[in-house]
């Protein structure tokens, strides 16, 4: 058990936890754009920097990657030093992608009306890497990753070619904080512009509705032990089919447990 002080609030940590997790658990909000609880902390956006004091030493650390291990440290999540860095990071981001709503909101909250920096004609991607981490860690595919470095860094498929690995699950678009990954569907195709990738859609075996990227069910089945027929149907038909099969059961039988 470790006891620390965050913004004048005494909090306790059990076992391994990061400063960000601990603060959130105790109702203290720290802004961040590259963090998602489902994936490994990355420490790239630096918006979650907080000031920690231990003994005579004061420093800024990224709360998303900082492990809470030392008893008695004091944490300030909004000290003048923290706010100074946070504000300028938002100014940088405003100059990079001025159209992105969440960055406009966060900037406004910090009292930034306009960025002092040169606007770069860029897409809405802030290079937080959540898409790449979700694809690797949750989906198990690594269809996209960072390429190049420094000012040329971007997230892309290998050699910018249409991805052979992508299963079209669009988990990347789901976690993207800025809406930079846009998904469109037409003519039996799902198209992810940022990855230059088209995935054919599959029809429901019963009602013929297009309901999933064609290679997703097979991939899910290879990862999880599910009945093979289950994913051949769209969500509606699947529910119906389960209900029908249940209706054939004797509901008074002890073998069937109906949960609330």
């Amino acid at each position: 058990m470790v006891r620390i002080n965050i913004d004048s609030k005494e909090v306790e940590a059990n076992g391994e936890s990061t400063l960000l997790e601990l603060a959130r658990k105790n109702g203290i909000e720290i802004p961040t754009l590259c963090h998602h609880q489902a994936v490994t902390p990355y420490g790239a956006c630096r918006l979650c920097l907080v000031e920690i004091k231990k003994e005579d030493e004061t420093k800024l650390v990224a709360s998303c990657t900082y492990p809470v291990r030392e008893d008695g440290i004091t944490v300030l999540t909004q000290s003048p030093k923290v706010n100074r860095v946070r504000k300028m990071i938002l100014e940088f981001l405003l100059a990079r992608c001025p159209e992105v709503e969440i960055i406009q909101e966060m900037s406004a909250e910090m009292g930034i009306k306009q960025s002092r920096f040169i606007l770069y004609d860029n897409d809405d991607c802030i290079l937080c890497g959540l898409c790449a981490r979700v694809c690797e860690e949750i989906i198990g595919k690594s269809a996209v990753s960072f390429t190049d470095r420094g000012p040329d860094r971007k997230v892309s498929t290998p050699f910018n070619e249409p991805s052979e690995e992508c299963v079209g699950c669009t988990a990347c678009a789901f976690v993207c904080p800025t809406g930079a990954i846009k998904v469109e569907e037409w003519d039996e195709i799902r198209f992810i512009e940022k990855w230059n990738t088209e995935i054919p859609l599959q029809k429901c075996a019963k009602c013929d509705m297009l309901y999933t990227p064609a290679n997703t069910p097979g991939y899910i089945l290879s990862k999880m032990q599910l009945p093979e027929n289950l994913l051949r149907l769209c969500e509606k038909c699947r529910r119906k089919s389960v209900a029908e099969s249940l209706s054939n059961y004797d509901v008074t039988s002890k073998n069937v447990i109906i949960k609330k």
């Binding site: 630096r46 940088f92 981001l93 990079r96 802030i126 890497g129 470095r149 000012p151 040329d152």
Partner: peptide, 21 residues
């Protein structure tokens, strides 16, 4: 240093780029 920055964190990547310009 801008060219050789990995580009992972915003202060180095964006800050360096703006300072250079």
């Amino acid at each position: 240093t801008q060219d050789e920055s990995c580009g992972k964190c915003i202060p180095c990547r964006e800050g360096g780029k703006q300072m250079l310009s």
